[in-house]
């Protein structure tokens, strides 16, 4: 790997790592979302520094060039991040749904109390 390419790759890895840590420190990013970023930049840093490991890995996965392996790693990392976001979005959508339903039920209860009608008449004997 040419020295300029190596220096650039190392700077990118250090930059990503530092920005991620700074964002977690400033509470702009939660720890749970920083794990993949930190792990990927650390792995990339090691592979750039230990070029022989990158070459060995390239041979192992059958890629033509070590740079292809790095790009492949980046794509896999992005896919993992997107999958993590999809999981989190599904979880949050469920929570928003439940909260909105609870909000609607509580508002109906409040409206019933203000209007002087019990929205849950007989609920006590049902739960008994």
């Amino acid at each position: 790997m040419p020295i300029a390419q190596k220096v650039f790759a190392l700077l990118v890895c250090v930059g990503v790592f530092a920005v991620t840590v700074a964002m977690v420190r400033r509470r702009q990013l939660r720890e749970e979302y920083s794990v993949l970023w930190l792990a990927t930049s650390a792995v990339m840093f090691v592979l750039v520094l230990r070029y022989d490991w990158l070459v060995a890995l390239t041979g192992l996965i059958g890629a033509a060039l070590p740079t292809t392996t790095l790009f492949l790693g980046a794509i896999i990392f992005l896919m993992l991040i997107v999958m993590q976001f999809s999981i989190k979005l599904s979880e949050l959508a469920d929570r928003v749904k439940n909260l909105a339903q609870e909000n609607a039920l509580l508002r109906a209860e409040l409206h019933g109390k203000v209007a002087g009608t019990d929205p849950y008449p007989g609920a006590e004997d049902a739960s008994a």
């Binding site: 909105a100 339903q101 039920l105 929205p119 849950y120 008449p121 007989g122």
Partner: peptide, 22 residues
């Protein structure tokens, strides 16, 4: 509902109310 949530969520709100109401 505070905002539009779709048909399935709407009927489920009704089920939750019915459950609480007994």
């Amino acid at each position: 509902h505070p905002f539009n949530l779709g048909y399935g969520v709407t009927i489920q709100t009704g089920y939750k109310y019915a459950l609480a109401k007994g």
